[in-house]
Design a protein around this nucleic acid. Structure first.
Length: 426
RNA sequence: GGAGAGGUGGCCGAGUGGUUGAAGGCGCACGCCUGGAAAGCGUGUAUACUCCUAAAGGGUAUCGCGGGUUCGAAUCCCGCUCUCUCCGCCA
């Protein structure tokens, strides 16, 4: 969430940012509410502190008097303390209430978009940051969508997933399973080569962790919840991996921190239907390799560019046509300041599929999770957090199957062949 | 799941009602010493909120979390939680 100080000192900037997120004038009123609550909070706090200070001083006096045996004098002071105490209880209640109201309001305010974020309301308003520079592949008329290819070559089975679990839980088989594993290893090796430490995190997290990265409270409905143990299945490795550094104060020399993790990701994604969610286009469980970085505020945007280069390199080597979008204010996630989406072209469906989302959260997450570093002048400052998919597997598989289909089978990109151990799925 | 023990600062560890934000030690930083280093000596070494134009400095809170007793709680009482040990179960 945004820092109170920041809102207090940059009210206009905040309002401007929220307008870019298409807040109505009425909705913008939340900022004024926050400032008023904050004012109440500080006034109350000051009053309470003064009162407690008085109480502490008097108590000390009582102690001294008792030691000297002046019991009557002590009793007189006790009465004074009792009065202060009663007043303090009222103030304390007010303070607690004010604080929780303030938090509730703050949780409703999304991150302020970076100045480069385009104005817009829907995905149609996203800016094509980097278009595919070549002609898009054109397949013969009898080319099959990936869910047909999956059946033909026994790559994955969604009906079987229904039997075992429910809709949206694919079962990969044979060379399909092998391909999945190959992609994971390829992505992890690339991340390791780029200096990311490999992490294997838990696949379930507690509410504190989910709150810190922003899944709670705004995206609660997206996560699977294990009620019996009060745990959430992770929707992305971002959650456990970033939370490794929750409540940590780093030395400036520890930065940057780079981590990567492969995990399955679980998403409920309720309410969608139709052709655009067929096959692997949208599933409840998919594999993903994530990269996470903790950066000095001065170079987090440089880091974001490095991440774009990294993801581009993966797609180049997989020989998939892709484009990069800069998300508009209306399409950007709640916690992000700037997000680039990568989309690959799936030739049989003739549509673009999102396979990666690379974001800079600046201090929005680190403020919630108290992730800081000690700078040169011994000041504790919030770290910038970033993450990106590198990459999300299911849709990559969809595109690979469709784009690489030939009469003789599915051709495996050269760079994956050492990982798959085969050149074709046939 | 059953039984027991325990959660104090970066770490170890003292502390059963009164200048204890917390002894002592280690670590770390700076200084002195040294040709240089080690040893030694000295000084310093939490976080949040807040007051002050800023610095300096001050106030309040924090000894797992929440509540209670008390003029006053790290210290007493209650609830919760986590960790460890033993037993049970188990990949």
């Amino acid at each position: 969430m945004l820092q109170l100080n920041f809102i207090r000192e940059n009210k206009e900037k905040v309002l401007e940012g929220l307008r870019k997120r298409n807040f109505s004038e009425e909705q913008l009123g939340i900022i004024e509410q926050i400032l008023q609550k904050d004012d109440t909070r500080r006034t109350t706090q000051a009053e309470l502190d003064a009162l407690l200070g008085e109480r502490n001083a008097l108590s000390k006096e009582i102690g001294d008097l008792m030691k000297q045996g002046k019991k009557e004098d002590a009793e007189a002071i006790k009465a004074k303390v009792a009065a202060a105490k009663e007043k303090a209880e009222t103030l304390d209640k007010l303070l607690t209430d004010t604080k929780s109201q303030l938090d509730e309001l703050l949780y409703q305010v999304p991150n302020i978009p970076h100045h480069s974020v385009p104005v817009g309301k829907t995905p149609d308003d996203n800016e094509v940051f980097k278009a595919w520079p070549h002609p898009l592949p054109v397949l013969p008329a009898d080319a099959l969508p990936h869910w047909e290819l999956a059946k033909k070559y026994n790559v994955f089975d969604l009906e079987l997933g229904v039997k075992l679990t429910g809709a949206g839980f694919p079962v990969y088989r044979g060379k399909g399973a092998r391909l999945e594993r190959a992609l994971i290893n390829f992505f992890l090796d690339r991340a390791a080569a780029a200096g990311y430490e490999e992490i294997m995190p838990p696949l379930m997290v507690n509410a504190d962790a989910a709150r810190a990265t922003g899944q709670l409270p705004d995206k609660e409905a997206q996560m699977y919840y294990v009620e019996r143990d009060d745990l959430y299945l992770i929707p992305t490795a971002e959650v456990p991996v970033t939370n490794i550094y929750r409540d940590v104060i780093l030395n400036e020399s520890d930065l940057p921190v780079r981590m990567t993790a492969y995990t399955p990701c679980f998403r409920r994604e309720a309410g969608s239907y139709g052709a655009h969610v067929r096959g692997l286009n949208r599933v409840h469980q998919f594999d993903k390799v994530e990269i996470v970085r903790l950066e000095h505020p001065d170079r987090s945007y440089e880091a974001l560019n490095e991440m774009l280069t990294h993801v581009s390199g993966l797609l180049d080597d997989l020989e998939l046509p892709y484009r990069i979008l800069r998300l508009c204010g209306g399409d950007m996630g709640f916690t992000s300041a700037l997000t680039f989406d990568f989309e690959v072209y799936s030739a049989a469906q003739q549509r673009w599929l999102e396979v990666s989302s690379v974001s800079n959260f600046e201090t929005f997450q680190s403020n919630r999770m108290l992730l800081r570093f000690r700078d040169g002048s011994k000041q504790n400052r919030l770290v910038h957090t970033l993450n990106g998919s590198a990459l999300a597997l299911a849709r990559i598989v969809a595109a690979l199957l469709e784009n690489n289909q030939t009469e003789k089978g599915i051709v495996i990109p050269q760079v994956l062949q050492p990982y798959t151990g085969f050149e074709k799925i046939d």
